[in-house]
C-alpha cells in the first residue's frame, strides 16, 4: 500500500498546470488512483470539470494517454479501447500490458452515463470505472443529480420559500454496481488516503470490470473554504453519509467501522456547508428534513452491516 510519500515517488501521470479550483477533490483522487499501479494506464473521461480543466487546447495536464469523447459514454468509449487492445494483442499486433481507467462525475455516472456504464460492466471489459461523486452537476453550475442529497440546495432544487431543496434522496449507485456481480466494487473518499490507495491497488490487481465510487468534495458547489476539503471528506465518513466499504465477488467488508452509536450526527456535516445552510434555521420543517437524511444514512449503514454479516462473517 502506498502512503502519500511513496505515492509521490511514482512518476506522475497527471501533473500541475490544470485549472481545477483550489481545494478541488478530483486532483487528489487522481493522484491516488494513478499512483496505485506501476503499469501504464490509458484514461478515458466523461465531459465534466475534470476533463475541461485538464485539457484546454493546446495544453494538457496528462502525461499518460487520455481520451475524452462525450458526457454519457466514458464507459462505452473505454470498452472500445479495451476491445481494440484485446483484439490487437490476440492478433500479435500489440504486446504491452496496459490498464484502462474510465472516469466520470456523478452526472456522467449516476445519471446520463448509467446505461453506458451498466453495459460496459455487464460485458466484463477489463477496466476500472471511477466515479468522482460531488453530489451535483458542478461543471454546469451546481444542478441537482441522482446523487444529490435529500433537502440539498442546488440551482435546480433551490432552497425556496415553498420547497426546501431536493425533494428526493440520493440514488445508491454503489449497490446498483454490486448488483452487476463485479469482482470488485468499493466506496472510498479522498480524505482517507490509505483506504483509497489500498482499494485502488486491490482493484488494479484484478482482471475484469471494477467500479469505485469516490466521494469528492467540491468547494464552490458545497460552499466551504478551500482549506477544508479533506475535513469535508472525513466528516462524510464519520457521519456515515459516505460509508467506506468494498465488495469482492459479493463479499462485503466495511473498511471504516462506524456503528450507529459511534457515528456523528449528520447535522455536524451539514452545518459546515452553504448547500445545507437553509436547514439550519431550527424550524420544524428543517428538522424533519435533517431527520429524513439521518434516517436514510442509518438504514443504509444497517443494510451494509447486515450484508457484511451475511457474506463475510469473519469480518472484524
Amino acid at each position: 500500500m502506498a502512503n502519500p510519500k511513496q505515492s509521490a515517488l511514482v512518476e506522475e501521470k497527471f501533473i500541475g498546470g490544470h485549472r481545477a479550483c483550489a481545494g478541488c477533490g478530483f486532483p487528489i483522487f487522481l493522484k491516488q488512483v494513478l499512483g496505485s499501479t506501476s503499469d501504464p494506464i490509458v484514461v478515458v473521461s466523461a465531459t465534466g470539470c475534470l476533463e475541461v480543466t485538464s485539457t484546454i487546447f493546446p495544453f494538457s495536464a496528462w502525461k499518460t494517454p487520455f481520451l475524452h469523447n462525450a458526457f454519457e459514454n466514458s464507459a462505452a468509449t473505454c470498452s472500445g479501447i479495451e476491445g481494440a487492445w484485446q483484439s490487437l494483442k490476440k492478433q500479435g499486433k500489440y504486446d504491452k500490458n496496459v490498464k484502462f481507467l474510465a472516469l466520470g462525475g456523478d452526472g456522467g455516472t449516476y445519471d446520463i452515463g448509467l446505461q453506458s456504464l451498466s453495459g460496459a460492466m455487464e460485458r466484463r471489459h477489463d477496466m476500472m470505472y471511477v466515479c468522482y461523486n460531488n453530489e451535483a452537476y458542478m461543471n454546469t453550475g451546481v444542478q441537482r443529480s441522482g446523487a444529490t442529497q435529500f433537502g440539498q440546495h442546488t440551482t435546480t432544487s433551490p432552497a425556496g420559500k415553498a420547497v426546501s431543496g431536493k425533494t428526493q434522496g440520493s440514488k445508491n449507485l454503489t449497490e446498483i454496481m454490486v448488483a452487476h456481480d463485479l469482482p470488485y466494487v468499493a466506496q472510498t473518499t479522498i480524505g482517507y488516503w490509505q483506504d483509497a490507495t489500498k482499494k485502488f491497488e486491490k482493484a488494479w490487481a484484478i482482471t475484469g470490470p471494477k467500479f469505485v465510487n469516490v466521494y469528492s468534495p467540491c468547494v464552490p458547489g458545497w460552499g466551504y473554504h478551500m482549506s477544508q476539503t479533506v475535513k469535508m471528506s472525513k466528516m462524510a465518513v464519520e457521519t456515515n453519509l459516505w460509508p467506506l466499504y468494498e465488495v469482492e465477488n459479493g463479499v462485503y467488508t466495511i473498511t471504516f467501522k462506524n456503528p450507529v452509536e459511534k457515528r456523528k450526527p449528520v447535522e455536524e456535516f451539514l452545518k459546515l456547508q452553504v448547500r445545507f445552510k437553509h436547514l439550519m434555521k431550527g424550524d420544524d420543517k428543517s428538522k424533519a428534513i435533517i431527520a429524513q437524511i439521518q434516517k436514510t444514512i442509518d438504514e443504509r449503514y444497517a443494510h451494509l452491516e447486515l450484508m457484511e454479516k451475511a457474506t463475510n462473517p469473519a469480518a472484524k
Partner: peptide
C-alpha cells in the same frame, strides 16, 4: 462510442 475508442486505439 466504442468505435471511437477502438479507432483511437489504432484498430
Amino acid at each position: 462510442s466504442a468505435c471511437v475508442g477502438s479507432a483511437a486505439a489504432g484498430a
